[in-house]
Design a binder for these strands. Structure first.
Lengths: 205, 205
DNA sequence: CCCCCGACTATACACCGTATAGGCCACGGA
DNA sequence: TCCGTGGCCTATACGGTGTATAGTCGGGGG
């Protein structure tokens, strides 16, 4: 069947993007891996931009929606799934921020969050904002983690000493012990999640 | 002076990126605007990747750090400045997520946030996490706003009707009035900011 | 006067996305 | 059995990209 071929090409595209990153995902490179000419891809996946949109669709399709549990369990389960997807595909998770794709799946995920927030008692007038606030945090955290924004400061001890005098950064000096100890991004995510859920609960009275 | 030339090139690069976006920022296009050959740029700004890092540096340099006020005013002032920078340069604000740059300026901004959080009474052991949490929200919100992630759903009425049956999305149906009314991203940002600051205050007891 | 050195140019290479046109083969109807 | 015909794929080409390498030129110091 024709869409088998499409699925097969998308599989290979995801593998290639996982290995080489978005820049390495090339029409020519993808065709080479499949033993095809670049132009053979076009009838199946469209232009490269459309290919990227399809990859984003697959990314979202990988996110399971927990079927049971109270609203806290459902929201934190979804959040953990999103972070897991980001860690599984660090090379192109950023698509979720840069490509505004509104697929049925997207709507299903948003619907899922709406229902959880309503169950949490968030007033109708605040549900949309609460959904965007929560999504922004989860997606932002996941992207920061896999794109290296968080760990950029891990060379902080050198950088701190490097260019600014100690007197200019008293808070850094006071927090030296914390700055020098390793961070578990999983633990931090869980702690953040707890705080965010508490905030949502507060919104619901 | 030599670094005048560099500054001049970076000025033009920012202008070009503002007009044409990151994809439109091309070594050849930049050189053309300056009346130069592409290769003339390299001694001044290095490779294109290094040029992008320099642009990010300039972006951060544009963010003013409010000199006075209590910790709430300082943090929300900084947050508003970051969002303003994003809106001023929507084409390449995303660099802040994808390019881990640790410049003296970055450290100064983080130091500023640390001091505010300490003033808020956040325990030393939680300051680093609170800084990342707050930064993630602010940067994520700003990026979502300028990259179109938020407004992707503005064609929601059509999309909702389009592919999912009404019975599958009861929360969307219940929130139809809210979904169809326009959103002020400024108002929403302020409301989110208030909630986040309350959360931080709670962390500080 | 000469020479050097810095800024700049010229050329070239490998790669990219994709438009256009043509080939090949399997299959259904006469 | 032959003949379209239509789906998949290939070949070629064009204009773009980043950047390595080598050459050009003018002005300031010995």
């Amino acid at each position: 069947m024709a869409s088998d071929r499409r699925a097969q090409i998308l599989d290979e595209a995801m593998a290639l993007a996982d290995e080489e990153g978005l820049d390495g995902l090339t029409m020519r490179g993808l065709a080479r891996r499949l033993g095809l000419t670049p132009m053979a891809l076009y009838p199946h996946v469209g232009t490269r931009e459309e290919l990227l949109d399809s990859l984003l669709g697959r990314l979202l399709a990988e996110v399971p929606l927990p079927a049971s549990g109270d609203w806290r369990e459902r929201l934190s389960g979804l959040a953990r799934s999103l972070r897991a997807v980001a860690r599984a595909h660090p090379g192109y998770f950023s698509l979720i921020f840069t490509r505004p794709a509104v697929s049925p799946r997207t709507i299903a995920v948003v619907e899922y969050i709406f229902q959880a927030l309503l169950e949490a008692g968030v007033p109708d007038a605040e549900v949309l904002r609460a959904e965007r606030l929560m999504s922004t945090f989860v997606l932002g955290y996941a992207l920061s983690e896999v794109s290296g924004r968080f760990s950029a400061g891990r060379l902080a001890p050198a950088a701190r000493r490097g260019q600014l005098a100690d007197e200019e950064i008293p808070a850094h000096r006071r927090l030296a012990a914390e700055l020098d100890s390793p961070v578990s991004w999983t633990d931090e995510f869980e702690a953040d999640l707890a705080d965010m859920l508490a905030m949502l609960a507060h919104l619901g009275r």
